[in-house]
Design a protein around this nucleic acid. Sequence first.
DNA 1: ACGGCACGGCACGTTCCGTGCCGTTTCATG
DNA 2: CATGAAACGGCACGGAACGTGCCGTGCCGT
Lengths: 184, 184
Amino acid sequence: MADRTEMIMRTALDLALEVGYSKLTIEGVASRAGVGKHTVYRRWSSKGLLFLDSLLSFNAPALDIPDTGDFAADLRTQVHAAVDLLGVPPWNRLYQALVAEAQHDPAVAAGLNERFIRPQAEKVVARMLIAREHGQVAADFDLDLAMTVLSGPLYFAFLITGEPLTHEYVDRILHVLFEGVRPR
Amino acid sequence: MADRTEMIMRTALDLALEVGYSKLTIEGVASRAGVGKHTVYRRWSSKGLLFLDSLLSFNAPALDIPDTGDFAADLRTQVHAAVDLLGVPPWNRLYQALVAEAQHDPAVAAGLNERFIRPQAEKVVARMLIAREHGQVAADFDLDLAMTVLSGPLYFAFLITGEPLTHEYVDRILHVLFEGVRPR
DNA sequence: ACGGCACGGCACGTTCCGTGCCGTTTCATG
DNA sequence: CATGAAACGGCACGGAACGTGCCGTGCCGT
């Protein structure tokens, strides 16, 4: 049974890679997997949840943050890894589709947050906390906010403007985050 | 003929408000508008483009930035206005749906950028330019990047975490943008 | 007066949805 | 092992919406 579940998820992911999420179909998945439609519906109540499960199960590594003592460098490493996960074909299109699906399916939105967004955010915040204890960050600073200011521009480029996500772009964002825009 | 075009757009917007974008249907729009489906398809090749046109035609004010001389305050005013546009029911759901649609329809993505995102960005950048000339911003600062750092967290909250968009949230982002996170 | 064009209405074939039913296989329990 | 329940694959179904034809009508410029 775990066998079948995993096989269906792999099939869904393969199909999504081949034809794109919008043309992904539960009938198609069931047929390709040699499985009845009931067998799919019994496990996932919608195409969105199946896809969420498939993508996050097979393509979302832990993305743990190193702690070398150099906060800025560690943060940079982490965000570069995130960019390499989200911004590179063919996976970028699938993550785009997942976020899109989350816009009209609250269950997908919840799953995306709990399984992908929040765990990453918590790791970043935890690392920031250490940095703050070392005086590398203002003592009264809101770490959740810093996390948002860091992630936001990434997703903005990813979802809205469609600019490519590059390491260089990330570096420039980090610079603003640390220095602000005031004249020095 | 312009009559009909406008009437179809209004009908589409009304219907979207009533049943939500995902249940919006070209058949439904045509039927409600008392119009043949051809008449709709002749003007818009997809539901996404019709919706883009409808939403931006009837619900996207100019959002011009004031210039009172106080750059930070003017920027704040502008972003508050953007939040009031995007973040408030019932329009927030429609903008969410529009961005979602843009994820799998490049034509919608292009239209969204050219008619909504870019014009606003250009206004902000123009205002920033004045501020830079007055020395309120570092002379070597990349204004497009600042624009992204400001917009990104907004859209991140709007599309990903689902946090409500509040003026207070905007104010905190602006604070980071100007000051950075370094200890003072 | 006439020709063309956009129109509303209708019907069509297609795809996919989600749900029934059927007969078979698998598996835990006794 | 034996047995009954649960899950299964296969199939068919009604429903919704798609995008595209065709038909007859009415308007509008020439």
